[in-house]
Amino acid sequence: MADLAHQNVTGAHPGETRRDFLILTTAAIGGVAVAATIWPFIDSLNPARDTLAESTTEVDLVPVQLGQRLTVKWRGKPVFIDHRTPEEIKAAADVNISDLRDPQKDSDRVKKPEWLVVIGVCTHLGCIPLGQRAGDDRGPYGGWFCPCHGSVYDTSARIRQGPAPLNLAVPPYDFTSDTTIKLG
């Protein structure tokens, strides 16, 4: 009885190919349905529209004196703003580019040479490097030093020593006046 019924489905009978095609189509439809159902769930985990919405931060540079550094928060991350001294600018420009792990000219990383703006997240594993506060260890190049695994950045925030693969990232920004920048 059950055997007979079973045989009817898979045994060699006329019309079997049409039946198998039907089963195949059924299974295919089922597969498409499952995939189509899963996607909205997964996509709901992607950043929502409010997270993606353009967010900008304006920074007033007047209080940042020559040689001083400022940290601001932008899109949840710290941004380092460095009012560089002429010595720091020269030190950054004098570096032989081919010596760098992530070759980049200092002039390509700034809009005005006395203002360095970088995202303060180490490109190794994401710690926040030291160097923003007075008394912080700035590392051998006078830039920044990441205490987590010893990455060393120079006065253009380029990686010089340690495990980080890339220079500190430069965020999108513009000078809305001589003394204000707009991040993002």
Partner: peptide
């Protein structure tokens, strides 16, 4: 639309499987 088509296919499959019974 997808479900209407699927209903048709699934019903046909159901009838085919049950035909000998």
């Amino acid at each position: 639309l997808f479900l209407v088509v699927a209903a048709g296919v699934f019903y046909a499959a159901k009838r085919k499987i049950w035909a000998p019974v």
